[in-house]
Each structure stands twice: as structure tokens, then as C-alpha cells.
Computed example of a mutant assay.
Amino acid sequence: MSYTMPARMELGEVKLKVSDLQRSLQFYQEVVGLKVLHQEERVALLTVDGVNPLVILEEIPNAVVVPRQSAAGLYHFAILLPSREALGLALRNLMEAEVSLGQADHLVSEALYIWDPDMNGIEIYRDRPREEWTYDASRNVVMASDPIDWEDLLKEAEGKAWAGLPVGTKMGHVHFHARDIYKMKEFYCDVMGFDIAANALKEMGALFISAGGYHHHIGLNIWAGANAPLPPANGTGLAYYTIQLPTQDDVEGLVERLRNHGVSIDERDGAWYGQDPSAITFRLVLQDS
């Protein structure tokens, strides 16, 4: 029987492995705009709303910084802002911080790209309304990488103070370097039940998948090369990302389905953990748990 990922599924917290917690804390607070929710010696939980973690940082002993596009795993995680004004404020803050900054108008969204001190990729973006999205003859959502209108976006921030990421900010999507993109497609679409939102394998070696008609919750690419190596155990990068499911039946049903397909799933602290074919760890939880 086929399985479809629930349309109300959302992404939750990501956990990152870093080499210097204090350096990363300064970056994520002053540059990205997150706040510390809880901190221990080697771990810090960062939040937007003061209640729920959005990013968790863990300092790894003897960490090796993994160069960009050199291994399977995280390409970037993407923080979705609730308004264009919030994106304009973020852009102004990033420019004032003088960090290396990429940008793109994807038609469905406007996006800014930065990297943390350990080369973990970060996208900060806002979506255009769904009624403005367009589709091709194959029902792929049409996306592009056009330049953003810098001046117009900065006008959104004129006369307003930046106070970090606003309430309503959430994890929008994650994007991975795949070892074998066809095995990843089979896993995420045929087993986990995501839909293909845009197939750009021929054009750019990338695939975008989602639930509920979103432009993408997960991006997959082969930009680190076919059969890209796995990062070292003490390498910086993604420890896990989180899929939030709307009901307990959804959680239990997906866990059973994964196990039936030979995926090893372990329960820890009320969440279920497994790995995809590129050894990327995912975490399944009940929404608002």
C-alpha cells in the first residue's frame, strides 16, 4: 500500500556539530538572530519564541571542520521568516555584520545564504504567497535563481530596528548532498511518502520534494559528487534534522513502515531516530511534543 506524508507535516529543530561552542553562540545570536534557551558545557539550545528550540549546537571534541561540498550530508538548513519586512531586516543585519552573503530570488521565495564558522550552510528566506507560484506542464513548481531586488528589500527595513528573528520564524526546509540521489529519491518518496515538487536532475543535479504541495521541505543534490564520502565521525555538520508529524498514528505508522523496509529505528526520549541512504540522521516526533 502506498503511503503519503501528511500534508500538515512540518520540520522542526536541527542539531549541528560545531568545533567551538562560544564562537558559534556569538554567530548565531549576533548574525543569525537566535536567542539562547538553555546552555550546558558543550551544548546550547537556541530559540526564536523562548519556548521551543530551533537550532541545537553541540561542541565536538577534536572536531574537524568539513569543507563545503566535500561530503554527503548538510548543504544547508533553511530558516523561514514570516514576512518580507523580517527578511529586509535580516539582510541589513547581515550586511552590517560583513559576512559572506549569497542571495537568490527563487520565484516562490526570496533567499539569503550564509555559512557559520564551521561551514554549515544556512538559508534565511521568506515565501511568496502560494497563489503566486507557477507550474510547468509536468506540474513541477517553477523555481529559478534570479538576483533579488536588494534595494527594494532593504526598503522594507527602513526606520525599523532589528531585534533578531521574529516570532513566527520556523524551519522551512533542509537541503542535502546525496551519495546516490536515486536511492535518496526512493527512500524519501517511495518509503517516507514525500512528493516530487520539482525535478531538476537533468538541469542541475537536484531534486526537490515536499508534503502538502510545498515547494520543498527537502532538497537533494549531487554537487559533492556521486558516492560522496561520509564526513568523519568527529566532523562538523548535521547531527540530525526533525520531522514533526500531526498525530501519534502518523508517527507510529511511519515508524512501522520504515521498519518494514529494513530501516533501523530507535526510540530515545520520546522521539524516533533513523538514517537515510546517505547516513543522514532524521528524528520523528509528534507535533507540539
Rank of each mutant, 00 (worst) to 15 (best):
I148S: 02
H106R: 13
D266I: 15
G12V: 10
G12Q: 12
I148E: 07
R268W: 12
K183F: 06
E41P: 03
N234F: 10
L91S: 04
V66R: 11
D269H: 12
P231Y: 10
Y113T: 10
W133A: 01
L11P: 02
V191S: 04
Q22G: 02
A63C: 09
L94Q: 05
R126D: 01
A197W: 01
L57K: 02
L37Q: 01
V66Y: 08
E186V: 08
A144F: 00
M204N: 13
E151V: 14
K17D: 00
S2W: 00
M204A: 13
P129V: 07
E186W: 00
V64I: 15
N62T: 12
G274E: 03
M204Y: 13
D152C: 09
L54M: 08
H38E: 02
H261T: 02
L25E: 01
V65Q: 09
T4R: 05
L91P: 03
V51Q: 14
G205V: 10
S145L: 10
R42H: 14
L107H: 12
N62A: 13
E13R: 14
Q69C: 01
P277G: 02
A239V: 01
G193T: 05
V263I: 15
T169R: 07
V65E: 02
Q26E: 13
V108R: 02
V65T: 15
E151R: 13
F187G: 00
Y3V: 08
F194L: 04
H216M: 08
L230S: 11
L201G: 00
R139D: 14
T134D: 10
G270C: 10
Y28I: 10
G274N: 05
D105R: 13
S289E: 14
G193I: 06
L165W: 05
E131R: 14
S289D: 14
G205R: 01
N234D: 13
Y241M: 12
Y3P: 01
S145I: 14
A271N: 13
E41D: 12
A72P: 11
G159T: 12
R257M: 04
G168T: 06
A78R: 04
M95C: 11
L45G: 00
T169F: 06
L201I: 15
D180T: 06
W162Y: 15
T236M: 02
A200S: 11
A279E: 14
D49A: 03
G219M: 06
R92M: 08
P229K: 11
E98P: 00
N93F: 05
S24I: 03
Y241R: 08
R126A: 12
D146A: 08
A72T: 06
D249F: 13
A72W: 13
R84N: 09
K155M: 08
G172T: 03
L45K: 15
I124R: 03
S210E: 08
W150C: 05
F282E: 10
A233M: 07
W272V: 02
A97L: 04
